[in-house]
Amino acid sequence: MLFGIEWDTSSEWAFAVSILPILLIGMWVTIQATVLGFFVAMVLGLILAVLKAAPLRIVSWPARALTEFIRDTPLLIQLFFLYYVLPEYGIILPAFLTGALALGVQYSAYTSEVYRAGLEAILSGQREAARALNLSSVRTFTHVILPQAIPRIIPALGNYLVSIMKDVPVLSVVTVLEMLNVAKIIGDRTFDYMVPLSMVGGLYLIMTLVASAGVRYLDVMLPKRGFPLR
């Protein structure tokens, strides 16, 4: 029994059917961790990208160093750091939040590069035209650069959504009951790993296929020349 749901071991099929609702609860946790981690990665990545582009070296250099550090160390290190070190400073977060945060931090290193590339891809001619027309730098960013950059940025960010989803099982080491952890607990208790693990594989396949299709759909639907302003 897990989450108050009993399993039926009379046959393989009955077993599979009975543990499906349990796995779906784990899947819901996986989806939540993915979405939250992705959100953190999007916001933190944008902040890092802006800092890295700062003209002042004392601002850009730490942001660069942090990005490089995050990118060159395993996700587990960030996770352990947040899980075991933060409480020493009185910051105690639930395992789930800590895990999602660690995912977000890890992937912010990648998304910051997506933003940077997307923003730099807007040709200098656009900035020069905006300057010649005396548009303020804020207005230039929000109404000239961003509307053209976002359609390039979103699909590239979307690819990381799928990657984050596939990294969620790492959170099991800090006791988060995401889908793979749930399957492992079922296996531990029933001595049947084959069925729950196969089912997790199948469910993962469905999730990633759906997410990938969503990203591809976005890519097709987004206006290539930028979000139209009339």
Partner: peptide, 14 residues
């Protein structure tokens, strides 16, 4: 400009 540098996401009037 030689390359026009119009804002491609804005209508002509905008």
């Amino acid at each position: 400009f030689q390359q026009f540098n119009l804002f491609p996401h804005m209508t002509v009037r905008r």
